[in-house]
Design a protein around this nucleic acid. Structure first.
Lengths: 206, 206
DNA sequence: AATCGCATGTGACATTTGTCATCAGTTTTT
DNA sequence: AAAAACTGATGACAAATGTCACATGCGATT
């Protein structure tokens, strides 16, 4: 047994400048130890399958290949003891509900300052859940009115696919796709599919 | 005169977690001094108009209100002696040409590691220009084929505005706008305006 | 002055998109 | 079991979008 209790942390963030800087910041705390640094969710999963689980994983949400939410899904599925803290950007509160249902323990805004992060890690380590107040508030009036299909159609539409292609991707008829998009447009008070996609994305629903 | 030569740095970055972390990272270098930290370009401009110019400004490009490019424009316009180093993301090489024409001295990928950043700051401080190799290469085959008007129209289209609204914004006729968009779609090998906007954005042309 | 090139505009047309009423199965509720 | 709600599909129609050929005007070139 160690003479001193220390909390091990795995940092997952795709921008290495940011990753290194945050690691440096945390390593200055005497009771925190950086177990490893990964540049995306896949690397993190690879790491976790080959090493003992760290106490905490501090991960960005938006990453190529495997996102922070995907990573959260993996951790709960594997039943790891690791506590997950996700970092996100102010403009995307929509992630939070999905994250909470995946058992994420902390939700930090990249807009919050470094003291807050360190404090949050301590609290999560002690068993608390931490969610930035602004995020909690935004998440509350964040009633995503879109159905699964509507979101799927909207997402594809935002990538420039035309109705016919969307229909093929979703195994639906062209008319049905237009119905879904029309519904989405109306629900979001948008003027067309592009506008609707923009609104939904900004809320983090896509 | 100081007994020791030190380089003063102004850090401009909208995500305070990242801002704090980078500041911490740089402050560990004995010959670097953090003059101040700002959360967007406007704050930086306010700071510059009230304080002596720092040796170097290290700024993110994508920020609300006043971007890193806007800040670069301000610095050259005011003829400040400050050297500007911009940070950007891998996926957006299109910024680099605009930045270079604004006299920016350094261009760093957030994907590069912290040693590279520190090295780059030293070099810029010594009078060199520094550009991440990957960015330089990408910038070379980055021939934006779009005209000003085409970009403007595309940008508005990507925000969900309909042809008529775009025409009003640009003081053009509806038909002309459709011509521009049609041209842009064809130039970018896109299937429609959404697709074209997506391609252009990803290259950093919007 | 004649010519060229460019930016802008027009009109015509086919295609795509958005809206709506309605319908047929299926599942859920009562 | 009857009613209601849900999902996916149709067809019809208006509006928006994409394409193209051609006109106009204006500054630069010769």
């Amino acid at each position: 047994m160690n003479s001193k209790a220390t909390t091990t942390i795995l940092i997952v963030e795709d921008q290495s400048l940011v990753r290194d800087a945050i690691a440096m910041l945390l390593s200055l705390e005497s009771e925190l130890t950086i177990a490893a640094k990964c540049s995306n969710g896949q690397e993190a999963i690879d790491y976790l399958s080959a090493h003992p689980a760290p106490n905490i994983i501090l991960s960005d949400i938006e990453m190529p290949l495997v996102s922070g939410l995907d990573l959260a899904a993996y951790v709960t599925k594997q039943n790891l003891s690791t506590k997950l803290v996700l970092m996100t950007t102010f403009s995307k509160p929509g992630y939070i509900k999905r994250a909470l249902s995946l058992g994420v323990k902390g939700f930090i805004l990249k807009e919050s300052d470094s003291d807050y992060l360190i404090d949050a890690i301590h609290k999560v380590s002690a068993g608390e859940k931490v969610i930035s107040t602004e995020l909690a508030i935004m998440a509350l009036d964040d009633n995503n009115p879109l159905s699964q299909k509507e979101m799927a159609a909207l997402k594809l539409a935002s990538e420039g696919l035309k109705t016919q292609d969307i229909a093929q991707s979703l195994f639906l008829s062209e008319g049905t796709v237009r119905n879904y998009l029309s519904e989405a447009i109306s629900k979001l008070d948008a003027t067309n599919r592009v506008d609707a996609a923009r609104i939904a994305k900004q809320k983090g629903w896509l």
